[in-house]
Design a protein around this nucleic acid. Structure first.
Lengths: 111, 111
DNA sequence: TTATGATACCTAGAGTGTCTAGGTATGGCT
DNA sequence: AGCCATACCTAGACACTCTAGGTATCATAA
């Protein structure tokens, strides 16, 4: 999967995963790899800054936890995050529909 | 439509439109607005550089024409452009499917 | 005749999200 | 002791898009 396609859509993916329950960064990346069947392999240098942006925008909150001696920063959706996820999901649908219309429109008026 | 969603997908859209027949830049933008029902309103400062990139990559060729006293640069697909369009169309489908799986996966394991 | 809007193209510079490539640290296994 | 998986962090580079300017033609209206 060409990675540059994800640009602009990563927030939707992250919000969607966190909406299924609180997750830490590493687990979010893992979940995305699994659910996308390997298509989305987000580098840490992409994912962590994205999480900070989402938290800075009050769409996520985080807290440190320790599991088996390793620290994890757990993220969960805020109320605004839930709203934003709903908005972005609708936006994705209309975007995907529009792309589909452009791509699948039959050829005509060859020159 | 949030414009930043288009990033990384513009080449596919442009190649798709030109595949329907030779077009000049202004007409490509117009066609995208029409087919997407207004969702894709590509600024000229985005579209023209994209066309130059595609031509530089040998996916499009162009030639100047004059219609009603106005010059137009007409673009058409090269053989490599047709191949690339096919590849990007498949890529789009798997991308869209993967996003859909992430977005629509039911919630579980709330914390 | 002048102004305006649509058509049609061009470009420099700024902005922004992602990636590369480095870093730290813990725990389990060999 | 070495290695891999887990887990997080960050600076700088990169690439695509947007903003905001520019030129020019033609049709229409004032």
């Amino acid at each position: 999967m060409a990675a540059e396609l994800i640009r602009g859509h990563l927030d939707l993916l992250v919000l969607s995963v966190v909406a299924r329950g609180a997750r830490h960064g590493y687990a979010i990346a893992e979940q995305l790899r699994l659910t996308s069947e390997g298509d989305f392999d987000i580098p840490e240098g992409t994912l962590y800054p994205a999480l900070y942006r989402l938290e800075a925008g009050s769409l996520l909150t985080s807290e440190w936890t320790v599991v088996d001696g390793r620290r994890r920063r757990m993220y969960r959706l805020t109320r605004a995050g839930k709203r934003e996820l709903a908005r972005r999901t609708r936006e994705w649908t209309s975007f995907a529909d529009a792309v589909q219309r452009v791509v699948s429109k039959p050829a005509r008026s060859q020159m």
